[in-house]
Every structure is written in C-alpha cells, then in structure tokens.
Design a protein around this nucleic acid. Sequence first.
DNA 1: GACGGGAATGGGAACGTTCACAGACGCTTG
DNA 2: CAAGCGTCTGTGAACGTTCCCATTCCCGTC
Lengths: 343, 343
Amino acid sequence: MSGSERRRPPTIHDVAREAGVSRGTVSRFLNGGHNVSPAAADAVRAAIRKTGYVVNRHARSLITGRSGSVAFLLTEPQEKLFEDPNFNVLLRGCTRALAAHDIPLLLMTAGTPAERRRVVRYVTAGHVDGVLLVSSHTGDPVAEQLLKAGVPVVAGGRPVDRGGRTVRIAHVTADDRDGARGIVRHLVSLGRRRIATVAGPPDTPGGVDRLAGWREALAEAGLPAGDELVAHGDYSRAGGRRAAAELLERVPGMDALFVASDLMARGALTALERAGRRVPDDVAVGGFDDSPAAVAGLPELTTVRQPWDRISSEMVRVLLGLIGGEEPSAVILPTELVRRQSA
Amino acid sequence: MSGSERRRPPTIHDVAREAGVSRGTVSRFLNGGHNVSPAAADAVRAAIRKTGYVVNRHARSLITGRSGSVAFLLTEPQEKLFEDPNFNVLLRGCTRALAAHDIPLLLMTAGTPAERRRVVRYVTAGHVDGVLLVSSHTGDPVAEQLLKAGVPVVAGGRPVDRGGRTVRIAHVTADDRDGARGIVRHLVSLGRRRIATVAGPPDTPGGVDRLAGWREALAEAGLPAGDELVAHGDYSRAGGRRAAAELLERVPGMDALFVASDLMARGALTALERAGRRVPDDVAVGGFDDSPAAVAGLPELTTVRQPWDRISSEMVRVLLGLIGGEEPSAVILPTELVRRQSA
DNA sequence: GACGGGAATGGGAACGTTCACAGACGCTTG
DNA sequence: CAAGCGTCTGTGAACGTTCCCATTCCCGTC
C-alpha cells in the first residue's frame, strides 16, 4: 500500500474523445449547457459518467480569474469563535448554503495584525471570489482594505463605524432594535416596572441597537430608562455576571433584566442566584440570540431568536450576487420572541 | 465606486522584468531559493516588494498537481459541530497550525450521503492535498474511500472499526484509557467506593477506551465494576442526564460518578440535583475533555484535560508529513487531571 | 432560390506557473 | 591547460481549462 500512485485523472479532452465531440462542446455543457444539442449533451453526460471526470478547478480558475471559493473570515480574536456560539451557528449555516452551490468555504481568522496582513494579501490576490465577514466590533481595518481592493464582501451583522453609523458594506443582520423592543415589551406586559439592562459593548451594533430597543420600549410604557439602569458587558459569561452584580448593587429594586446576549444572561443568572434573587419570581430575565446557551441550564431563557439559518443563507445569496456584479445591499431580518421559563 | 475594476495583478513575468532576471530565477527564489545567487535574490526580493506580487496559486497548482490547501472534514452530522465543543477547539487549533504554514483550510462536512459523495468526489479529484478527519464514530465509509484513493488522511481520535480495533489510518489522539484511569483513581483516593460511570456510545473510541480505563482503575483498587454500574450516553447533555438518572435508580448508593464527557457530565449534574444529591458531598463527579462546558456552570467540573493544542498541531504535522511522502503514524498524547469543585 | 440569422460545433490561443534541459561560468584537480 | 564538476541562469514546453472566432448547418422569409 506504500507507493500508492494516484493515477492521472481524466481531463476534458478524454471526455471529448469518449463522447466524440470537441473540448469546446464539453466545456459548454459543463457551464450551463447553452448551445449544446441534446444529442451532444447525452453523449457528454455518458462520457463523464464513464470516465469519472471531475473538472480541474485550478485550470478553470487560471483562465477565468475566479477561484470558485469563498472565505469565511473571522476578524475577532480566535478565542471568540469558541466563547460565542453565534459564530458557530453562522459558520454552519454558511457552509451548508455554500455547499448547495458547490462552493468550498475557506476558514480564515484575522485576530492579530500578522494574520490580518496574511489574509488581506491572500484575498486581494484573488484566491477567493468573495468574503463572508464576521466581526462584532466596529472600525474593522480588514473590511476597509478589502473593499478598497474591490473584493466582494458581505458582513454578518450591521457594520458600524466608530460613531455608530452604518458603514457602506453589504450586510445581513437581524433587526436587533425591534427584537429588543419586543422582549422588553413582553417584560412590561408581565407587570415589571424596574427593568434594567445589561447591554453589549458600545462599539458593537448589538450593543447599540439592543440598548436603543430597550429605551424605546420603556419610553412607550412611560417607564424610567435612565443610565443607572444600564451596565455594559463584553458578551462573555463572566462579563454578564459582573454587569448584573453591578446593577443589583445600584438598583436593588429591579424586577426585570434584559440582557443583550444569552451567554451574558447565563452569567447574569449566576449573579442573581448568588444575590438570592429568584428567577423569574423576583427578577424576570430576558436574553438575546436564542443560542445553545439559552437552554444550557435552568431556568431556560426567554430570549429573542435570531434567524440564523436565514441570516447565513442570505449572506451567501447576497455575496453571490455581489460576485455576479450586483450592487451591495443590506438585508434586515425579523426576530422572534421565544418564551421560556425565565420570563 | 460601482464599476470598480480590479486591475490585473502582477505576474511572475513582471517581477522577472523588474528584477532583470528570468522567470525561472524568480520561480526558484519563490520555491526555496536554491540555486539563486545572493545578488539575484536581492533583486527579486526588491521587485516583489515593488510590484506587490503574490503567487497565483491556481497556475502553480495546475502544473504541480498540488492545491496547497487542506480539508478539515467533519463526518458527523453538522449539528454535532455545535453541540460538541471539542470539534471547535480542534478546528481552531488546526486553522492556526495550518496558517503557520500558509496553508488554507477548507471546511467540509459529510453528514448526509449526498454530502459524502460530494466531498469524496471533490477530494479525490485532487482539489486538496490532504484531509484532517474528525469523527467520533466508527466504520466511517468516507475514510475508507479516501484512503483507497490514496489521499493523505489524518484522523483526530483513534479510528476504530466495528469490532473496536484500531483501523490503519494515521491518527492523533489523547490517551483516553490512561486519562480515565487517572481520574477514577482520583475518585478512589477520595474514599469513594461505589463508583459508577456514564460511558460514551460503544461504537466510539472514547466510549470504549474511557470505559476500559474506569474498569482498570476499579480493578486495581479491588472495587466492583459490574455492568449495573455502567450506563451509556450519546455525548449530549440530555443523554448524560438520562443515563445518570438511570444509574441513580439502579444504584442508589453510588458515591461517585465518572462521566465520559463534560457535556454529558453537565447533564448528569442536573439529574443529581433533581434527585437531591449534593455534589461533591454525596456524589463526586468526574468529567472528561476539559471543554468550556466544564466551567460553564456550578459546580465546576473536575475533569481530564485533552491536550487539544498539541493534538491539532500534531495532526497538521503528521498530515504534512504524509503529503511529503512519509509513512502513516499514530501519535498518542498524555492527558492531564484537572481538579475543580465536583470531586 | 437567395438570403439572413440563430444554434451548434471545432480548434487555436491564452491564463501564470513549474519543470526539464541546455548552456555559461568559475573553481578545483590531474 | 584541459577536464570535470557544481552553481547559476534562461528558455521552451506543459499543465487543463475557457474564451474567442470562424465555420457549418438548419430553418424561415422575402
């Protein structure tokens, strides 16, 4: 078994000979079948089956200038990939959506400056046709460089600049503000009146928009929404615990808490438990994401479901459109309130 | 900004002209620099910097027959990727290790038969140079097909056939048996005498080897290790809960429990809590993996750390060796006992 | 029956690299 | 000084595909 030679695979030439047609015809058949007679198509089909032909993507890419592959680029430090379940769900969805188009996904991370350089060089050299960009933070230098180089880029989540304004990048995102408004309204409808929030970092769209939704829902209900009711976390479990503890100290009478991510919410639950508060009796808790963390312990979290399947499939759809020459577009998808035990 | 033309990138020819040498010299410089005079090397280096040249991998691959990329292949149903944190850690490690060699990683899944066909066709067509295979189950048809086609494959974890014997695939794994023996010895040293176990599925190496380690440690200590002390889970949280509940019914007097994965252990803790058992006072619990799940709740789990960083870097090392023509080898890495609250 | 036009086909050229080979050069050795 | 050898260099060929153009064929129309 040692020197197991890999035989030279059949080429388009072999198929053409087998089918009794020219390379050109086979190539046309492979690329949509336009201007190929039914008889020729049948012959080619049979020849492909017989020879076991598979197109050589390198040769194709060399001449078309397209690689037929797409990068999934994570511009957060790599650890994030594992702390935050959302990245995983997105990665799964994109892999699946791309597989349907027979497009391979290259996984790349750009957490450090060195990685960033490597990735930018690789991508701008044309080794991928487009980039699915995932990053929760703002002012991403990679995105700018790629855009400037004319590489099709679709961001997952609303890409914002340091001022919180939307950057002109094609993107797909859940309607964070509306989702937050919805779950806070739910808390209000349960009769809660002192509703605090653990927001995300102010330099992330989730941090900004979910906080805005919270404010709006409280304003609607004529309830207080002052800054003393807001603490910021970093989307980690520990950050959620700290922020909730801070709020408990500051607002001992709070009877509900909206946390901007499920993972932080789990941390917040720990803080509430330690402080002797019962959930949901003393404090109702709402999360965001409907990530695995939502049901990874008791009580299960009432939360806002982000439509990850649709987000990932839309990201792929928009990216392929961009690659095909369409104009950048933004897609905002509705969220869904998921009621469980915590509220 | 609409019709943003991507300029034709510089080729090796441009570099050669700029440096005043021939294509051949530039190519030799790029591929190790053998037989290139220092003067020529300097000129080429400068020319590359000036032109911003990046090698066109497609053209290179076309002639070398190598793609310069590697697939990370998950042969479990995709959902597994998200339920089981180990896959994530492995994925991160492999991405990082490959990045150091400037080798892109293609993420592929082969959960369904259709996906399997697609992947096998893609890989055997030579579109990747090798495969990092991750699968916890046995009798993997993909692995066999790839091996038969002469594709370099390295498995993460011990690849076993239906009889539990090691299959002849290069692989890298933690020493599951030894790790299990170690943590069970620890339980024994705490004075526990009725030590049950939630094992993994019997068709996985983790299921077989960790169970064997449990048996051996108990035999050493002269403690009972009968089948009534064994329940099987499926590596999911819910499975762990069910199995632990079953054991509680069957062996009410158990004072320690070794669970073959952290995730299942978290489920088992839920079952113990519901049954009113205190951990670790009434029942000491040991896990396996040292995954994020271990510290994702209270009590934090005493567990067996798998050396994921080393596993992934060794997988990459072995795979690159295989690609370079070396013989398949197996690497078994030691584990480490991590003491926390649960035991 | 000549003509126009669309569908189908074949084959040369090109994509950007590596490989193999031939040759030039400089040094050591007989 | 010739021969031999290792180092360095340039050039033509090849990799397998798509693109482009020229050509043929068929059908409908004037």
